[in-house]
Design a protein around this nucleic acid. Sequence first.
DNA 1: CGTTTTCCGGAAAGCGTTTGCCAGGACCCT
DNA 2: AGGGTCCTGGCAAACGCTTTCCGGAAAACG
Lengths: 335, 335
Amino acid sequence: MSIGTVSRVLNNSDHPVHPATRERVLAAIRALDFEPNALARGLSGRRTQILGVVVHDITDDYFNEIVRGIDEVARPAGYLVLVLSSYRDPELELDYVRRMRSQHADGIIFVGGGLQVPGHVDRLRRQVEAIEAEGGAVVMLAPNDLPWPSIVPDTDAGIAELVEHLVGLGHRSFAMLTGPDHLKTSVERAAAFRSALARHGIALDPRAVVSGGFERLQAAEALERLVEQGVRFTAVVCLNDQMAVGCLQAARRLGLRVPRDLSVTGIDDLPVTELLDPPLTTVRVPMRELGRRGMELVLSRLEERPFEAPTALACELVVRGSTGRVGRGSRKGER
Amino acid sequence: MSIGTVSRVLNNSDHPVHPATRERVLAAIRALDFEPNALARGLSGRRTQILGVVVHDITDDYFNEIVRGIDEVARPAGYLVLVLSSYRDPELELDYVRRMRSQHADGIIFVGGGLQVPGHVDRLRRQVEAIEAEGGAVVMLAPNDLPWPSIVPDTDAGIAELVEHLVGLGHRSFAMLTGPDHLKTSVERAAAFRSALARHGIALDPRAVVSGGFERLQAAEALERLVEQGVRFTAVVCLNDQMAVGCLQAARRLGLRVPRDLSVTGIDDLPVTELLDPPLTTVRVPMRELGRRGMELVLSRLEERPFEAPTALACELVVRGSTGRVGRGSRKGER
DNA sequence: CGTTTTCCGGAAAGCGTTTGCCAGGACCCT
DNA sequence: AGGGTCCTGGCAAACGCTTTCCGGAAAACG
């Protein structure tokens, strides 16, 4: 029996194969424990069934949740999901993208916001262009300077709600802990806060704005430093949940009771935030759904099927226990 | 200029190429932004430069650290490291392994302990045998029933030291929180504890042994349940650090001061454990090194180069603040 | 200057699939 | 019974690269 026939059986080709023959083929495959060579398959013009997912940090639950969402859609569709963690290193990111091109990945999803490093965007664009030219589908799931289809969480509305909430509780002086300045996500969230505050005639004290990393520890240190320096604020808004968790820990160490002495907020609504003490008030980013939609967008583009892709996903405020009315406690800094 | 020549330039073949020609080729490559097709490369008998790493849960820092160690060696060697997280699902694990076979990965590293599920080991063995037969190198980094080269952390010695330490502090009644029963790692660690305790004539109260997951939350719940049930113990030993972290949180919630009222220990020495309050007494598993050694073993096997592979890595006790002398505090259960 | 050696580039086979094309046989119809 | 249709299955090209084998040119030698 010929090679071609086997291939047709394997791919349920529309070319008819006699049921008996098909059965014989399948039996032989089982007997020999045969596994088709994915390389050869990919080579001969077909798809590779590989999807590259470029994230900033796979340790971070934010990315992890999104990857899970992607996987929920990708796996049933037969895709192998490769998670590529750049740890926010542009070189590494570019290297991964090249590699995906080389492997002829059918699609690439960029999950983290673009790294705003001089020259990097252009080099990345060249690669992405090449990938698209070779039939791959590229999708972005965060604000990015690359002109490709993207779905982004619309945190602005949620941040506005959050500010509304805090102001309603009587807060007027805020501290803000931001992520790295070269991260578009961070920059945009910060801008959203500033403009929402501005609508209430509130301006941020520059001393109360700390731009550091997006990580827990960095936030904890930042808060401690602010308090040490005697900067006054009744609420600290963090640009992601990880940092808020760090603030909660730092606050406890500083003897500040949350929310009595200090209100703390995050953004993302990571799975852990519900379990914290107190549970975190935050802006919910629909991470799983973001991942699913992203993958659906990739699939639709590969199949050249139209897809009603939303370009943004609503993010709503989730009020929990880490925010409270101002002025009921001692002022921060006093222990 | 011919295809063959280009190939020789790309691979620094030992077949001589005139420097001028080589330069022309390189220039053309740059100009056209050419990227060789990894599929075709792999197909034509060469290596694919792909390494599959099968872990239980990429969210877990334990695996993450090991993967980083692997990466430290793999990247310089030109390997693309694919992290495959089975979430302890045998089907998924098997599927990933098949997929790696299909992709002709040069090597596979199994990081988590074997999943002890009926039939699973055999199916896995068939796949691994096939992969080895096709030239791939398979390595295990945890206790496993598969007869392939492995490097395992020798936690037994560290656990013995730990028990020594606790007994020395006056502890006689223990609680033990284990991982899933079908996980070899968990079973072995539990056995090590039992035998070390037995050497001191101490037997574990069956009621004080809870076998749950390897996760933080599960451990927290388990500890709370034990205390509720009035089970008596002065120290709780957890079979990994994640669980110990959960215990620390639960203890705080229960009003138990660590180590005054209760001593808590883990195993692994995750990066976070130093930062906890109190910092955790644990058994250090050299995760980064384990990863590096594992990858080196893969490389040596691929190059058929002899390698003095240690089969076990020493794990030593690290004493920090979560263990203390018994009897100085109130008895647990009293609030 | 002829011969041997060395150096370098080209031609072609092969890697394991997919797929378009073709042909043999079964079947149907007149 | 003969010719036309289907239904199947085989053949072979193509995918993009590596690598072996060859041959021509240049260099070295007597």
